[in-house]
């Protein structure tokens, strides 16, 4: 065997990690029978939660892509004073506990937050509304995308863009027609990460948007709501979330093959 006892150690560590990470997920499926699963999903509250999660996550992803892609492009292609600080600030929500995100959103755009009066005057209500869920999801998920998109743009061979410029294309055209198509695998990987994070968001949503069926109760909140009263239903919804998240991850890997892995490694 290559590496002798060191190889054995590496193998044992990997086996321990694999077991630890897959056991809870396997337990969700072992603990719920397919019949129970389908029954629980027929319930109106569960359907409402799934539909709401899909809508709010889709809205958040659209916002993240529209604003995050050009922002990431700028960060990847220009250098300026304080760029490291800007990147760090954008990445900060990655390491923030969701509860901190919830408190921060309340303090910033909640009714008594620093922008609360301004928003109120403009007739915009965020806390305890569906729009508030989208705000919370966008806040926690966007750094996952921007970080990945930056890496993807930075990895593109600059001579491609230069060639398009030489041929008379504007920078905007070069960005849309050259940079984005070439960076697509990395952008897709970033989108998948952001999608997964948004689908699973719990703490910031509960603190900022509350929990109301069909309005602000996303799937993770619905799971928590059922935890004490209907464990089978909580398991069923969890199984759906695992399946959807797994499908997102898998589809990205399948579509781009090795490119996704390369994108994740690039930094």
């Amino acid at each position: 065997m290559r590496g002798g006892w060191f190889g054995v150690l590496l193998f044992l560590c990997l086996a321990a990690a694999l077991l630890f990470l897959t056991l809870p997920i396997a337990a969700i499926f072992v603990d719920s029978s397919p019949g129970e699963l389908i029954d629980s999903l027929g319930e109106q509250g569960a359907l409402d939660a799934l539909w709401l999660s899909l809508r709010t996550t889709a809205a958040a992803i659209v916002i993240i892509l529209l604003v995050g892609t050009p922002a990431a492009y700028l960060l990847a292609t220009r250098s300026f004073r304080g760029k490291a600080l800007v990147v760090t600030l954008i990445e900060l929500p990655l390491v923030l506990p969701p509860a901190v995100a919830g408190i921060g959103l309340l303090a910033a755009v909640g009714p008594s937050g620093i922008l609360g009066g301004t928003l109120d005057a403009a007739g915009i209500e965020l806390s305890l509304t569906t729009a508030g869920v989208v705000v919370a999801l966008t806040f926690v998920a966007s750094p996952f995308y921007v970080r990945q998109a930056m890496a993807a743009f930075a990895a593109v061979d600059r001579s491609l863009l230069d060639a398009s410029r030489t041929l008379g294309a504007s920078e905007a055209r070069g960005f849309l027609r050259v940079m984005i198509p070439v960076a697509v695998p990395g952008l897709a990987a970033g989108t998948a990460l952001a999608l997964g994070r948004a689908l699973g968001e719990f703490g910031a949503t509960l603190m900022f948007a509350g929990s109301f069926q069909g309005i602000t109760q996303t799937v993770p909140l619905a799971i928590y709501d059922r935890f004490s009263t209907d464990f089978a239903a909580a398991l069923a919804l969890s199984a759906v979330l695992v399946a959807v998240s797994g499908a997102i991850l898998l589809s990205v890997k399948l579509v781009q093959g090795g490119a996704a892995l390369g994108g994740w490694q690039a930094d």
Binding site: G110, P111, S127, L128, L206, M207, G210, S211, F212, D225
Partner: peptide
């Protein structure tokens, strides 16, 4: 009703923040 909170702290927090 705008939110069904999982515990009293959630209710009190939303009220003190003026969310309801």
């Amino acid at each position: 009703v705008r939110s069904n909170e999982p515990d009293v702290k959630g209710i009190v927090g939303k009220l003190t923040q003026g969310a309801a």
